[in-house]
Computed example of a mutant assay.
Amino acid sequence: MDGGTALVTGASAGIGAALAREFASHGHDVVPVARRTERLESLAADLESQGVTATPIAMDLDRDGAAADLYETVAARDLDVDILVNNVGVGTYGPFRESDLDAERTQLQLNVVLPVELTRLFLDDLSDGGAVLNVGSVAGFQPGPQMAGYYASKAYVNSFTEALAEELRETPVAVTLLCPGPVDTEFQARAGMADSSVGALSSNTPEAVAEAAYEGLMGGETVVVPSTSMRVVDLLGRLAPRSVVRRVAHWVNGDR
C-alpha cells in the first residue's frame, strides 16, 4: 500500500493530528477532518510543508447524516480516499445514573454510529487495495465502571473491527484496530476526568501511538496495542475473574 490518500477524522488534535502527520511523513496525501477550522488549517499547512497535499474539511460530525455529508463532500471534491482512519471520539465520565443523556448520545454518535457508517460508505471505494484503521481502545476489552458508556462504545468498535478484518481477510482491503491505553491528549480534560487515576501509572504519547498504528497497518496486523504495559493489562484482564476485572476498573477510573 504505497502512497495514497488518508482521510483522518478528529484530526485537529491528539492522536488524530499525530496520525495525520505520520501518514504525511510517509508520503501520503491527507484529508484531515474536524470541526475546529483554525486548527485544521494550521495542521494542513504543517502537512504540506512535508511535500504532500492536505485537503482540510471542517465539519461537525456530531449529528445525524454527518457520515453521508462527509462522503458526498469528498466525492464533490474529486478526492480518492485510499485509507479511512476513524479516529474521532469522546468520553463521558462519572456514575451513569448521573450522566447527561445528550452527552451519552454524542458519545454513541461519534464513537459508534459515525465509524460504522463511514466504513460502510467508503468500503466499496477501497476494494482495489485500500485500508481501514479504526481507533478502538484497550478499554474496549473490559467493562469500565465510572465510564460505562465509553468502555461499551469502544467494545463495539473493537469487536466490529476484528470481525470486519476477518470478513475481508481474503480481499485486498486491510483492516486494522488500534487499541491505545491512556494517551497524553485533551481527552481526559474534555471528559471531566482531571481527578481520575487513569494514566497515573502508565501513559503514552500521540506520536508513539501513531507510529505504532502506521507500522501495524502497513504490516498487515489486525490488532495494534502500542504499549507493552497495556498488552500486559489486556492479558491480565482476560485471565482474571470478571468480578475482579470490574472492581479493578472501578478503582482505576475513580478519583485519586
Rank of each mutant, 00 (worst) to 15 (best):
T5V: 15
V8Q: 07
T9V: 09
G10L: 09
S25W: 00
H26Q: 15
D29P: 05
V31R: 03
R36K: 13
T37H: 15
R39G: 07
A45E: 15
D46H: 03
G51T: 10
A58M: 01
A58D: 09
D60S: 13
D64R: 15
A67F: 02
D80Q: 14
I83Y: 01
V85L: 05
N86L: 07
G91D: 11
G91N: 09
T92N: 10
E98P: 06
E98Q: 13
D100P: 07
E104N: 06
L110S: 09
L114V: 04
F122L: 04
L126Q: 06
D128A: 13
N134P: 07
G140M: 08
F141K: 00
M147Y: 02
L164Y: 02
L178P: 06
C179S: 12
G181F: 01
P182H: 08
T185F: 02
G199Y: 04
G199Q: 02
T205G: 07
A208P: 07
E211A: 14
G216W: 00
L217D: 02
T222K: 12
V223L: 14
V223D: 04
V223C: 10
V225N: 06
S227C: 05
T228G: 08
G237R: 08
R238V: 12
P241L: 14
S243N: 12
V248T: 14
H250T: 10
N253Q: 15
N253T: 00
